[in-house]
Design a protein around this nucleic acid. Structure first.
Lengths: 108, 108
DNA sequence: AAAAAATACATAGCTTTGCAATGTGATATG
DNA sequence: CATATCACATTGCAAAGCTATGTATTTTTT
């Protein structure tokens, strides 16, 4: 048991929820997502984000379109699908229940 | 992406935190831990709990002693070590930060 | 006394996600 | 044309939760 490791484990499943939360607010491309995550206190590298975005898109929860960049190569802007919104609501419920359970146990 | 799977992923790292929270309240054996988890809304099977308890003990965060049972085989009563308490406090901080980050992102 | 049931503990293999390091490609700049 | 910047992508590794199954001890039933 090492804190770094357990912190990584705690992020499993939750990064997905957060990414969906950011994208459902409005279309975004990876760099913006990384910035918003950082602003919230969650540091994510591209090597973590890209595979996750790909998984979500392949699962039908997200879709994207290429947009020319004002500086540099074109960007992939991600947005949510109706399936993604439905899944997000389920995750939100799951998260609420989890937080409530942990609060119950850690209150003392 | 399937809800059951993501729910399992979300539990990674968090079950450990919860188990430590239960044990630091007072010495307990596995069956009691399972009951308290269930009461809080977290369902854990023995096949999940035993390996976790073993990992925590091997990491020096928990210790145990055998106690005769009033009915059935002897039981392993687990309690926390000073290292475990210190680690728990760190996990508590990590959890607070995680919950805060998720709240920030999901508020809308 | 032996068999069955209940209680308690344990293990192995599988699946999946986050992580780190590295790589590729498109565009802008020198 | 070469270099730098920006954007996207991939691979292999480590680790934890889960499921199913197994072992052992004690109690109860036959």
């Amino acid at each position: 048991m090492n804190l770094d490791n357990t912190q990584s484990q705690m992020r499993k499943g939750i990064l997905e929820f957060c990414i969906l939360a950011i994208i459902r607010r409005g279309e975004a491309y990876p760099s913006e997502i990384i910035e918003q995550m950082k602003a919230a206190g969650l540091h994510v590298l591209e090597g973590t984000l890209y595979p996750l975005l790909t998984r979500l898109k392949n699962a039908g929860l997200l879709k994207y379109r290429w947009i020319e960049s004002p500086s540099g190569p074109p960007r992939k802007y991600f947005s949510m699908t109706p399936e993604g919104e439905a899944f997000y609501q389920q995750l939100a419920e799951t998260w609420r229940e989890l937080v409530e359970a942990v609060d119950t146990l850690t209150k003392s």
